[in-house]
Amino acid sequence: MSSQTISAISSSTVMPRESEASRTQPALLKRVTAWPGVTTAIALIGTVLLWEAAARLLSIPTYLLPPPSAILGSFSSIGFERWAGHIGATLRVALFGYALSIVIAIPLAVVMMRSPLLSRTLYPLLVVVQSTPVVAIAPIIIVVLGAGDAPRVVITCLITFFPLVVSTATGLAATPPELIELSRSLRASGLREITQIRLPFAVPYIFSALKISITLAVIGAVVAEFCASEAGVGYFIQLSTSLFKLPQAWAGLFVLAAMSLLLFQIVVWAQKLLFPWSLPKNH
C-alpha cells in the first residue's frame, strides 16, 4: 500500500497528461484501473489539480495555502545541497535512535521473558515512560544532554522503544509450547532455546514493531529538531514558518512524508528479503 503511495507522490510531481483519460475505452479503463496504485494515483493527481485551481481562482494567500506549483518551485530554489544537509541530519538522528532502540529493546524483551520478576518490575515502568508525552520530555532531555546529536538520538530512541519491547516480548512468548517441550526434552541450553526457537518465532512480531517504530523514529527526530537544533528537515520547517515562507514549509513536510514512507518500505523489503517465511501466506 505504501509503495503505491510513494509512486503516487512521485508521479504527482510530474505534470499529468489528462487528455489520455478521455480517449480510453471502457474495457481499457477497467484494465488500467485494475493496476495497483492507479486509482490512488488518479485521486492524488486530481487533488493536486483541484488544489492548484482553488489556490489560483480563489486567490488564497500563499501563507495560508500555497499552490502546489509554488511548493514545487521552492524545492528547486532551496537547492540540492541544502536539502541533502537537512535530510542527512534528520536521517542520521532517526536511524541512530532507531538502531539504539533495537539494540536495547530486543535483549531487554529476552531478559524480561526469562525473568518474570524483572518483567513484573519493569513493565509498569515502561508503561509510565510510554505514557509520558515525548514532546514534553524532549526539552528537558536537551537541557540535560546538551547540544549535539546525543539528546536527539535519545528522544528518538524513547519514542520507538515501547512497541519494540512489547512486540518482541509477545513474540517470544508466542512460540508453540510443543517446541519448548522438544527443547527441554533434548536438554538444550536456554541460550539455544532463545536463538534457535523463540527469537526466530518472534520475527513476524518484531517486524510489525519495526515497521511502526521506523515511522515513529522520523517523528522523534523531528520533535527533537523542533526543540533545539540548527539542521534537519524539522528545523527547516520551523525556520520556514517563522519566516512566513509557507511553500518551503510545505516542501519540507512532503520531504518528511516521503522519507517516512521510504524508510517504512525499506523495512518491508528487508523482511521480504531476509525472512520471506515470516510473511502472511497467500502473498
Binding site: 508453540p176 510443543e178 517446541l179 517441550e181 522438544l182 526434552s185 526457537i197 526466530p200 520475527v203 525472512f275 517465511w277 515470516s278
Partner: peptide
C-alpha cells in the same frame, strides 16, 4: 532414548 511426536507437527517454518 525417548522421541516425541506431537499432536500438531510444530515444525520450524523457516
Amino acid at each position: 532414548d525417548i522421541g516425541i511426536v506431537f499432536q500438531k507437527p510444530t515444525l520450524l517454518p523457516w
